[in-house]
Design a protein around this nucleic acid. Structure first.
Length: 1066
RNA sequence: GGGCUCGUAGCUCAGCUUGGCUAGAGCGUUCGACUGAUAAUCGAAAGGCCAUGAGUUCGAAUCUCAUCGGGCCCA
């Protein structure tokens, strides 16, 4: 790899990519004896149903950052890719590609499934290529060859082993789950599909009354789906809301209080009287009599159970709709079903696949459910239970394919009953490090819910559930391995090595051990979250799993709290039947938003394609920017403009510091191996700036290590930025520059010391910044330092506490402050920084004199001043400060004003005269009086106005030929007087700067020594000042001779503060 | 609708636990200066009803409650 001429970060990136193309870094790391611990990373497998965008990149960068940091810190990190191939999104995409407009109902035969599955595999292949491409662009270190795939047979079989544990521990059961179902497509729909199709529809609004069994009172219940009366199981009230008993004619009705009046208007009842008010919670567990039991014998039978047809107090009940009481149909409502599951209530679901009532529905058997609405309303009316039937317009979901109204329907499914885990999952989750409180709290809350997890899906492309059921006797065979299936199969149409997917597995028939009938496989596949959640178990062999899991660090987007993080934990607890998490720590990452803070979405068109982004912008900047801009958990507003500003400056400075080091050290034939900091220390060559820089370096190492460990990557990036820009580039380099300029052989040791320090510092920065900007750091490391083959083989720097020097740091801070204040004073006096000044008078706090004087030479050189004096001052303001300054002999004059709000009441009508007299009075006189007597008396006519200290605002200014600036207690007064010598020096520097610019323009190297320089058209005065000093100029601009006659060929017009000159170099 | 969470300068954040100086820093912006690695750097300036409202208090960015807005998840 060669050093590029100019800083071209894209070119650097390309060179590194090319250079590393054929190199097997992971093998080098594997063989490196400095990398001691072997640790495991488990990739959260992206679903292969789309191309990566900017949001994905942030996650990629976090992972790779962690990898590189840990490798540098001395670990062998197993960093394998992983891909999630299955799941609904892939299947839907395949449907689209195949043109199956009716979704699942288009799949009728084995061949159809086969075609669908083949298409799914195609899609996965296509997107996998895109992802790998982007991974390569961004410099992901993932081992792609060893990637795990969730759809591979070996993965599936291991997942079955996990299911087996769940079954053996009594966690896996059958049950009912309510899904949105399209009666026309005969397909259930996922939540995201449902959310696509809400629209306003008209529905019946039915109020009916049910009598309490033990009291002569009626519950007034509201529903918009009368057919659900068939599957009615409970009536819900909100426990925290108020309800009332009202008398209507000779009946007592129970209604919510919040909407009582609206309700009465709606049902057209004018005369009613509130008899009692109470909280919903008081109504828990009262049996009621369903009005239609005679029509539905099966329901009547179930209703005999104690927990059936009772009132329940549940938070989800909304008192701002209907009557404030709702009936619960676990077969037809999601929330209703959850509550039934929680309370162990029987789920009565007499509805078939065509959404028609079955025989169990008694009188309504055979009817499409929504067609039963009218008949049910009539039946309610016939039994005198009708309060009111009306119409309501509300938002309701429609099928996104056929626009048919969806119904909510309980389907038989498989569940993990998480309450059976006891507190194991909670304990496991509590032991995990989350780095930030916000996601931790939410995650723990979710786990504490212990919601039953429905693991089955009525789909095709997924890990099949290996359970066979006998239709005759209901017996079940659970065959959790290929071996068991093969042994139990009646025949194997695709041989023993059939693919463990639908449709092939569906063809396997098993003989029932109880009744000898032929058993069919339950046509479910697993929830895709089960696949990814099984990753640690299913992607590793058993011994590796035992050895490496729990793994130290997992990370994914914050939306995965309930997703991957959750399923991983639950499945691991199930697998071990113990409170163990598969991860010791989990970092949840905030999402990427567009530059205005809006969510990136296809519909808004603000999605940034990852590949385009990485091809157009420098990858190191993208990576650095992602980590540097925001805290990991916060959302990040992504702006390419911002990306190209500060991050560019940081990386650019890093590059240029390297070229600076290279140019100078090569000129001196510096040998990095021979001359080290230890060597310099031994020879006592370190100056205060060196000590200071090394001390700062230690602090930065300490800080970055600490913040990387706690996932405060943004702080880590900022610590590097701060050191690089504010310490190294801004302070150290300008100080040592002049020392490097002096080529005398006797100063060689000093120059070598500087090179050694620069080399050590730059090398350390390269390593520290490597996880953030891998390309530039690898590039600079290789081209400038010719180190190991890959910077990853280096070791993370350790803090060397012998190099920390707090005293020097304090002195430097004071120096920086003093120089800064001096510059401000120069600004006021219009004195350029390169003009030397005669004298500075510096006022400091008590005790600081010594601190600053320890850097005496630097004070002069950095302030560009020939001598200085330091005064320690006690007072920071007012008359006391002025007096102290004066007492010290400083060239100050008092500046005095009246405190108007204070003197108003004292002077009253004499205010005008007072101001006039005050303006004419010598300030010094007032000060002296105040000092001696504590007050000053003005005589205004016959009146005496006595003003004390508080009535004056006293400040100071400096005498003529001085200028000053102050910041808090730091005051710098500079003398404006310059003699010829100083004027000459200033002029020389002015000239030198211009000639140096010209040198650069002409393309000379800084280290080249040129023949001559020529300066024309200087005025006589200036010429007199400098004509004897050509040697000084020659030294500054690296030429052999300087003259003032027209001796060169090409001259450039230039000017110094408006003075026209012509200059040339050859 | 529910849960968690965030809201301080254009941006990124500090300060909040334990109430008390004129609410700080860096970046960005504008103007000026410097520059021999630099799109670096230095100086100055502009920029804040600390989301809003109420309460507690002598005193609130800080404690309490409510509201509004953003994010994620769940409905």
């Amino acid at each position: 790899m060669k050093l590029v001429e100019n800083f071209d970060i894209k070119q650097i990136e390309k060179n590194v990519q090319d250079d590393l193309k054929d190199k097997d870094i992971s093998r080098l790391i594997q063989e490196d004896e400095n990398k001691k611990n072997e640790i495991m990373f488990i990739e959260g497998p992206p679903t292969m149903n789309g191309i990566p965008h900017a949001g994905h990149l942030r996650g990629r960068v976090f992972k790779d950052l962690w990898y590189r940091y840990n490798v540098l810190a001395g670990n062998k990190v197993i960093f394998n890719a992983g891909w999630d191939a299955q799941g609904l999104p892939v299947e839907l995409q395949a449907e689209k590609e195949l043109g199956n407009e009716n979704g699942k109902s288009d799949i009728r035969s084995t061949e159809d499934i086969e075609k669908l599955v083949a298409e799914c595999k195609e899609i996965v292949k296509k997107y996998h290529t895109k992802w790998v491409e982007v991974d390569k662009l961004i410099g992901m270190s993932l081992n792609q060859e060893k990637a795990y795939w969730t759809y591979k047979d070996e993965f599936i079989e291991k997942e079955w082993q996990l299911m087996k544990k769940a079954y053996e521990n009594g966690i896996m059961t059958e049950g009912f789950r309510v899904v949105a179902y399209c009666p026309s497509c005969q397909t259930s729909l996922s939540h995201s599909e449902v959310n696509q199709g809400y629209d306003m529809v008209k529905d019946p609004s039915l109020y009916y009354k049910v009598k309490l069994a033990q009291e002569d009172k009626f519950l007034i219940v509201w529903t918009t789906m009368p057919f659900t009366l068939v599957t009615d199981a409970m009536v819900g009230l909100n426990p925290k809301e108020e309800y009332v008993e009202v008398r209507v004619e000779n009946e007592i009705w129970i209604v919510g209080k919040t909407r009582l009046e609206e309700f009465m208007t709606e049902v057209k009842i004018e005369n009613y009287k509130i008899e009692k008010t109470f909280l919903g919670t008081e109504m828990e567990g009262k049996k009621y009599i369903h009005p239609l039991l005679d029509e539905i014998p099966k329901l009547a039978e179930i209703a005999k159970q104690d927990n059936y047809h009772i009132t329940v107090a549940e938070n989800f009940v909304d008192v701002n709709a209907g009557s404030g009481l709702v009936h619960l149909s676990p077969a037809n409502g999601e929330e209703d079903n959850n509550i039934a599951m929680k309370r162990g209530v029987t789920i009565f679901c007499p509805i078939d696949d065509e959404v028609k009532f079955t025989e169990d529905a008694g009188k309504y058997a055979g009817l499409f459910v929504r067609d039963a609405d009218e008949k049910l309303v009539q039946a309610v009316k016939d039994r005198n239970a009708l309060v009111r039937i009306g119409k309501i317009k509300h938002k309701y979901p429609l099928c996104w394919r056929c626009n048919h109204r969806l119904v909510w329907l309980a389907r038989r499914e498989y569940f993990y009953m998480l309450d059976k885990l006891g507190d194991k999952a909670i304990k496991a989750a509590e032991d995990v490090e989350y780095f930030f409180d916000q996601p931790k709290n939410r995650f723990l809350e979710i786990i504490k819910e212990k919601h039953p997890w429905c693991i089955s899906r009525e789909r095709f492309w997924g890990c099949p559930i290996p359970i066979w059921k006998c239709d005759e006797c209901g017996n079940m065979e659970r065959l959790f391995s290929r071996k068991e299936i093969v042994e139990s199969a009646i025949e194997l149409p695709d041989g023993e090595n059939f693919e463990l997917h639908r449709p092939w597995i569906d063809k396997i028939k098993v003989k029932c051990k109880k009744c000898e009938a032929v058993m069919q496989r339950e046509e479910f596949v697993l929830d895709t979250w089960h696949n990814s959640g099984a990753a640690p178990i299913a992607s590793l062999d058993e011994s590796t799993y035992k050895e490496k899991i729990p793994a130290p660090f997992f990370t994914e987007g914050i939306d995965q709290t309930r997703g991957w993080a959750y399923t991983l934990l639950i499945e691991n607890v199930i697998y071990n039947n113990a409170p163990v998490s598969p991860y010791k720590s989990f970092l949840f990452q905030g999402h990427v938003l567009d530059e205005n803070g809006n969510k990136m979405s296809k519909s808004k068109g603000n999605v940034l394609d990852a590949k385009e982004l990485l091809e157009k912008y420098p990858v190191d900047l993208v990576r650095f920017y992602f980590m540097w801009k925001a805290s990991p958990i916060e959302p990040l507003n992504f702006s390419t403009k911002e990306l190209m500003s500060r991050p560019y400056q940081v990386i650019s400075t890093l590059y240029h510091l390297h070229t600076f080091y290279k140019q100078n050290s090569e000129y001196d034939k510096f040998n990095l191996q021979e001359y080290t900091i230890e060597w310099a220390k031994k020879k006592e060559l370190l100056t205060p700036p060196d000590v200071w820089l090394l001390s700062k370096l230690q602090r930065m190492i300490e800080r970055t290590t600490e913040t990387n460990d706690s996932c405060r990557f943004h702080e880590s990036a900022k610590a590097i930025e701060d050191f690089l820009i504010n310490s190294l580039s801004q302070i150290y380099i300008p100080i040592i520059k002049s020392e490097l300029w002096d080529e005398d052989d006797s100063k060689k040791d000093r120059r070598f010391t500087i090179y050694a320090i620069l080399a050590k510092t730059l090398k350390a920065i390269n390593i520290l910044i490597h996880p953030f900007a891998p390309f530039t750091s690898q590039y600079l490391y290789r081209t400038i330092f010719h180190g190991k083959e890959n910077i990853l083989l280096e070791s993370w720097p350790k803090v060397d506490s012998s190099l920390i020097d707090e005293k020097v740091e304090t002195s430097f801070d004071l120096l920086k402050e003093t120089v800064s204040v001096t510059s401000a004073a120069r600004m006021k006096g219009k004195l350029k920084r390169r003009w030397p000044l005669n004298q500075a008078l510096i006022c400091l706090n008590k005790g600081e004199k010594e601190v600053l004087e320890s850097l005496s030479e630097l004070v002069k050189s950095q302030m560009n001043i020939q001598n200085y004096k330091i005064f320690e001052i006690d007072n920071s303001e007012g008359i006391e400060q002025y007096l102290e300054l004066k007492q010290n002999g400083l060239p100050v004059m008092p500046k005095i004003e009246l405190e108007r709000s204070a003197i108003g009441p004292k002077a009253k009508q004499d205010m005008g005269k007072l101001l006039k007299i005050f303006a004419e009075t010598d300030p010094e006189l007032i000060i002296n009086e105040l000092r001696d007597n504590g007050s000053y008396t003005f005589q205004i006519g016959d009146n005496l106005v006595v003003l004390d200290k508080e009535d004056f605002i006293v400040d100071f200014e400096v005498k003529e030929k001085y200028q000053f600036a102050k910041r808090q207690n730091l005051i710098v007064i500079i003398s404006l007087e310059r003699d010829n010598e100083m004027m000459a020096k200033g002029l020389i520097k002015d000239l030198a700067r211009r000639i140096q610019t010209l040198r650069k323009e002409k393309g000379f190297n800084p280290t080249d020594i040129l023949e001559k320089a020529s300066i024309l058209e200087l005025d006589q005065e200036s010429l007199n000042l400098i004509k004897d000093k050509t040697d000084d100029i020659a030294f500054l601009i690296r030429v052999k001779n300087v003259d003032f006659t027209e001796s060169c060929k090409n001259y450039k017009d230039d000017d110094i503060d408006g003075l026209k000159i012509r200059i040339a170099v050859e």
